[in-house]
Write a protein that binds this DNA or RNA. Sequence first.
DNA 1: CTGAAAGCGCTAACAA
DNA 2: TTGTTAGCGCTTTCAG
Lengths: 343, 343
Amino acid sequence: MFESYTIKDIAKALGVSTSTVSRALKGSYEIGAETKRLVQEFAEKVNYRPNPIALSLKDQKSHSIGVVVCEVANDYFSQAINGIESIAYNLGYHVIITQTHESFDRETVNVQHLLSRHVDGLLVSLSTQTTDTSQYKYLHEKGFPIVFFDRVATDINTHRVVANNFKGAFDATELLINSGFKKIAHLTSSNNLSISHERFDGFKAAMDKHGLAFNPGYLKHCEHGGMIYDEIEFAVKALLAMDDSPEAIFIAADRLTISCVSILKKLGVKIPGDIALAGFTNSDVVELFDPPLTVVRQPAFQIGQKATEMLIKTIESKWPVEEFTTERMETELIVRSSSQKLY
Amino acid sequence: MFESYTIKDIAKALGVSTSTVSRALKGSYEIGAETKRLVQEFAEKVNYRPNPIALSLKDQKSHSIGVVVCEVANDYFSQAINGIESIAYNLGYHVIITQTHESFDRETVNVQHLLSRHVDGLLVSLSTQTTDTSQYKYLHEKGFPIVFFDRVATDINTHRVVANNFKGAFDATELLINSGFKKIAHLTSSNNLSISHERFDGFKAAMDKHGLAFNPGYLKHCEHGGMIYDEIEFAVKALLAMDDSPEAIFIAADRLTISCVSILKKLGVKIPGDIALAGFTNSDVVELFDPPLTVVRQPAFQIGQKATEMLIKTIESKWPVEEFTTERMETELIVRSSSQKLY
DNA sequence: CTGAAAGCGCTAACAA
DNA sequence: TTGTTAGCGCTTTCAG
C-alpha cells in the first residue's frame, strides 16, 4: 500500500517500455487502444499513483505553497488556514505553515526557509513588526507568485485579499454612536499594519459623519499586536485614567478585543455600564461572554480560500501575470450587549 | 534568490566535479582542506541550499508527515498543530494537514491521499465515526510509522500520546462532588472514542469513591462529537426533562462544553444556579464567560510536540521499531464559578 | 504506434 | 584526494 508501484514495475509486468506506460496513462493519442486499455487497467488494479516527488523534480515545481502568518492558534488564522487547506488540498498542493510570532526576523527566516523548500508561491500576512518588505518586492519583481492577505504590503503591487476593514470599522463605530456614545476611544494594533490604517480610517469616517470630534488621546496603539499583555493593559489603563475618559472603545484587532475584556473585568470596570465595547474578533464564543460581545467578524475562511485560489492561479498561469487585483470581502457586524448604552 | 544554485553550478564555477562539491559540503574527510574551504565559501556566498525534492527522490523519503484530525479551527487541535509544526519545522519536515470533519469515509480518503503523497509517517487522531482501524493496522504491520494522539486506536500497538483523561475527568467530577453535588450527569462524545471511555471511567471512579450511585439515564452520548448542534441540544434537553434531573453536568469534550453552555443559556437555565458545569475544553477565553467556566485543560501544544518527536524518531530509526510506548500528559483543572454550589 | 535515452538535483559506489 | 557514473521516478524528445 505504501510501497507503491512505479511506472517501471508496470512496464516490466506488461512487457512494454516505461514511456509507453507514461503515455498510456495520460491517454496520449499516439498509443494503441489495446495497449492503452491494458496499461490503464493494470494501473487501476494495482492502484498506481505517480510519485509526486519525481514529478516535482522533473518539472521544477514542488506543488507546495508557503504560508506566513503570525500565529496558528488564533481564531482568525486557524479559520483562514482552514480555507487555505481546503483549496490547496483539492488542487493538489501541500501547504507549509510558518509562524512569525509577530517578529520581523522570524518572518525573514521563514520566507528563506520556505524558498529553500522550493515552494511554488507564498501566502503572506505580515507581522506587526514588519516595515521592510524588500524581500517580497525582490521576489515579486522576479515573477515569484505572492498573494498577501489580511495584513498586506501596500507598497507592492501584488494580489491581495482583505476584509472590507474600512466598512467593518465604520459600521461598528457608527453603532456605538447610534447607541448614544460620543466619547469613543480606538484601541488598535501596530501602526505598521495595513489593517490598522484601514480600520482607523473607518472609525474616523464614522466620527466625522456624525460630527464628533476625534480626541487624539483616545487613540492607543499596541505595537506588538496583542502578543504582550502588559502593553494592552498599559493602554487600557491609560484610557481609564484620562480626565475625560471615554465612554466606549472600538477595538481593531482580535487578540486585543479579548484581552481588553479580560483587563477591564480584572479592574472591576463594568461593561457596558462603565465602558461599552465593540471590536474585531473571529472568535465564535464571544456570545457567551459576560457581557456578550458586539463584534465585527471577518470571513476568514473565505479569505483563505480566495487567496489560495488566486495564488494557485498565478502559479499555474502559462504567462507571466501582470495584472493584480485586490479582493475585498465584506465583514459582518454582530450586535450584542457590550455596545449598549445603559441608562 | 528563488532560482537557486545547484551543486552543478558550483562545480562548474569552481572547475571541480559535482561529487567533490557534494562531499565538500558535508565536510567529508576525504576532501582536501583547501578544496573544501573553497567550495564551502562559495556555497555560503551564493547561499546554496540543497534541493529537498532531489534529496527526497534520492533517499525515498519525502520529509513530510501527514496529520489526520477532525478539524483545524478548534482550540485543542489548533494548539496541537502548533506543537506539531514547531517540532517538524525544526527537524526539517513538512506537515500536511487533513481534516475528517468527523467522517470515517473522509478519514480513509485522507490517509490514502497522504500515502500517495509519500508521507514518511502519520500523526492521527481518529474521527468519532471510526470503528474500523484496519487501514492503520495494515500500515503499522508493514512497518509504516504511525503515532496516534488524543483519540487513539486501542487495538493497535503503536506509539500513543494522550492526556491523562482518567485523572482529568476524575478531578473535575470530584470537584463537583466536593462542591456539594450528588446528582451529576455526564455528557460525552461518541462511544467509539478512546477518550470517551477514559473520561467516563474517571467520572465513574470519582462517583464510586464518594459512594454516589451513577444513574445510567444521566449518561448522554453525542455520537457526532459536537458537529451536530441538534444532537447536543437533544441530549441537554433530555437531561433537563428528567423527573429527577441532575444538579450538575460533567462534560467530556471541547465542543460539547461550549455548546452546552450556549444551549443552557438559550433555554434560560441558570449556570450554576440551576445546573452546575465542569467540562473539558482548551479554549482560553472561557474565563470571560458568563459564568466563568470550570474546565479541564489539556496540554495540547505539548501533546502535539511529543507525538511529533516520537513519530520522527520512529521514521529516522535505523532499525525497525518494535517497542511502543504510550505517553500520558497531565491535565490541568481550572476552577471557576460554573461549578459552584449556590445556597 | 512504441522504445531508447536524456535529464531534473543529488548521493555514493567505484575508479583513478 | 578527486572524478565518473548510475540511479531515484517520471516525462519527453528523438528514433525507429
